[in-house]
């Protein structure tokens, strides 16, 4: 494994640098917005003097880079400042919401990843059959439909016309697991539908890509049946692209929940982000963006490491 660890270390370091750059961009973007926090807090009726006094009090007169490092320093320790809207700590507000989002995304992943890889393998196995064509057509439809639209359709069928699931997924911290799952299922399915299609098509393509390889022909000439050719000979070599698309889609599940959470009124980070933007609650917006960025970078990192580990040449150096 000697060759792998330095590679992974390098990726980790790169991830941290990326995160740092992203934090600068987020902070800079908020700086560029017209008006500052002092004006926001005091509202339009405030006089010049009171605004200036508040600026002095909040330290807004200091240069941007000083404030950036202050913000970054406390963010690293888990302190994202206080919300302008309700004076509560941002971290306190964000914590349970982030847990909810992770729960929703986790459930969606649990449904979509096995489903996508299974369907992808089957589609590759029976390529150009009726099954393959139907699976491809359905996946194309679900890729092309925006998730909020899919969400509303699911609500119409499963919550309004048939009333199997609730239309609003209002989970609370003291809710029991079963009830929680039940209420989260509809948004989770919505998200799963969107990402399954990508992952399935990628799995299928990655496997089919390999079917022309000499070692696949060799396996067939050894009398290996078709199903084993796909699962034993093609799939292990197709892992790198599959891991990549899975990890990217998992990242998307967490960061892309905004719309679905709003549709189902699910109390996650997405909801909070949308609320905070409308209220111009900068500290919360900054924290949400940073968390989303960190998630994205983390999953990319996982994809890279996964791809490295799935390569026998790197796993077993000469």
């Amino acid at each position: 494994m000697g060759g792998v660890l330095p590679l992974i270390g390098k990726r980790l370091l790169l991830g941290l640098v990326t995160l740092l750059v992203v934090s600068i961009i987020i902070f800079g973007a908020v700086e560029l917005l017209p008006g500052d926090i002092a004006q926001q807090i005091l509202g339009q009726s405030a006089t010049e003097e009171t605004v200036a006094a508040l600026r002095e009090e909040l330290g807004l007169n200091r240069p941007a880079y000083v404030r950036y490092f202050e913000w970054l320093g406390s963010a690293v320790q888990g302190d994202f400042g206080t919300s302008l809207a309700n004076q509560r700590s941002v971290a306190e507000q964000l914590g349970p919401r982030f847990a909810n989002t992770l729960f929703l995304a986790g459930l969606a992943a649990l449904i979509s990843v096995p489903l996508a890889i299974g369907l992808g393998v089957l589609a590759a196995l029976y390529r150009n059959s009726v099954f393959d064509r139907v699976a491809n057509a359905v996946s194309l439809v679900s890729i092309s439909s925006p998730e909020f639209f899919l969400g509303y359709i699911l609500i119409v069928f499963f919550a309004v016309q048939n009333q199997i699931f609730p239309a609003i997924s209002n989970v609370t911290p003291d809710m029991e697991m079963g009830e929680r799952l039940y209420r989260t299922l509809l948004p989770a399915i919505t998200m799963a539908l969107v990402v399954t299609a990508y992952m399935m098509r990628m799995t299928r393509a990655a496997i089919i890509n390999l079917l022309a390889s000499p070692y696949i022909e060799m396996a067939r000439l050894k009398g290996v049946p078709n199903s084993k050719v796909i699962t034993r000979h093609a799939l292990p070599n197709a892992l790198a692209p599959i891991i990549n698309v899975v990890a990217l889609n998992l990242a998307y599940l967490i960061t892309g929940v905004v719309l679905v959470e709003v549709v189902f009124v699910y109390p996650g980070v997405g909801q909070l982000l949308v609320d905070s933007v409308t209220k111009r609650d900068f500290p919360v917006v900054q924290a949400c963006c940073l968390i989303f960025a960190a998630t994205f970078i983390l999953f990319n990192l996982i994809a890279d490491v996964g791809a490295i580990l799935s390569n026998p040449r790197l796993r077993h150096p000469k």
Partner: peptide, 29 residues
């Protein structure tokens, strides 16, 4: 195939599956 008629390909480097050990591919048939 593999049991009574076997095949030896031009490029062994390309015809062995990179994901499995030689002996596992040997014993497969």
């Amino acid at each position: 195939r593999g049991s009574r008629i076997a095949y030896v390909a031009q490029s062994a480097a390309a015809s062995f599956n990179p994901a499995h050990k030689l002996i596992d591919q040997h014993t497969e048939s």
